[in-house]
């Protein structure tokens, strides 16, 4: 893991990182990836990946409206709103 790797991952993760923290991130991530490399010893060519602990699949339900509109309630938690809208910096010039 070098500086460019860390900066690329931070961009993908949408995290600002301080230049002074890059070396520590590189070291920590390298150590974690070393730990992860232990799995290479396991032969898994014929193994089916397991994404759910009970191998369950998504349950479907009838396509009916079950939620009520709680916009005002939800907007109380928003950092910046105006007349029912969530405000962000200008996206399109």
């Amino acid at each position: 893991m070098d500086k460019a790797d860390v900066e690329k991952i931070a961009h993908l993760a949408r995290l600002a990182i301080d230049q002074k923290d890059i070396a520590r991130y590189a070291r920590d991530l390298s150590n974690i990836l070393d730990l992860v490399k232990q799995m290479e010893k396991v032969e898994t060519n014929e193994v089916i990946p397991m994404s759910h602990p009970l191998d369950a699949t998504q349950r479907l339900r009838p396509d009916e409206i079950t939620e009520t509109n709680q916009r005002e309630h939800f907007q109380k938690n928003a950092p910046l709103v105006d007349t029912g809208l969530y405000l962000v910096p200008k996206v399109i010039e």
Binding site: R14, P89, V91
Partner: peptide, 23 residues
């Protein structure tokens, strides 16, 4: 940083809002 949770001060643009709010 948009609908709930911490938001940074004075974001320059949307990307800046995301990355600094999260950081």
């Amino acid at each position: 940083g948009v609908r709930f949770g911490h938001r940074c001060e004075n974001p320059r643009d949307l990307l800046d809002l995301y990355i600094r709010s999260r950081a």
